[in-house]
């Protein structure tokens, strides 16, 4: 799952020169993920994983890093 998230984020939303060196806990918001990027990312995740991410949980701590995103998605996949 993380690979697909990585590919989408670094191809479409955030430009870093070497995505391989971007750690799973590195800060995506600092790297330039903005509110419009978050919106596209959520649309991508919902289509790709068939989950609905609750509106009330869209907040910086859930989208800050690749690990945070994965945790957030997994929490809703189980339901």
């Amino acid at each position: 799952m993380k690979k697909k998230l990585r590919d989408f984020i670094f191809q479409e939303l955030v430009f870093v020169t070497d995505p391989k060196r971007f750690g799973d806990d590195d800060d995506l918001l600092e790297a330039g993920l903005d509110s419009m990027g978050i919106m596209r990312l959520i649309m991508f995740i919902e289509n790709e994983h068939g989950v609905t991410l609750p509106d009330t949980e869209i907040e910086p701590d859930n989208v800050r890093s690749l690990n945070a995103l994965e945790h957030w998605i997994l929490r809703h996949k189980k339901e």
Binding site: S35, M36, M39, I42, M43, P54, D55, T56, I58
Partner: peptide, 12 residues
């Protein structure tokens, strides 16, 4: 508009 689109999508 981009912020309003975000509200339309996920404004709850």
């Amino acid at each position: 508009p981009s912020l309003l689109s975000f509200i339309a999508l996920k404004g709850n």
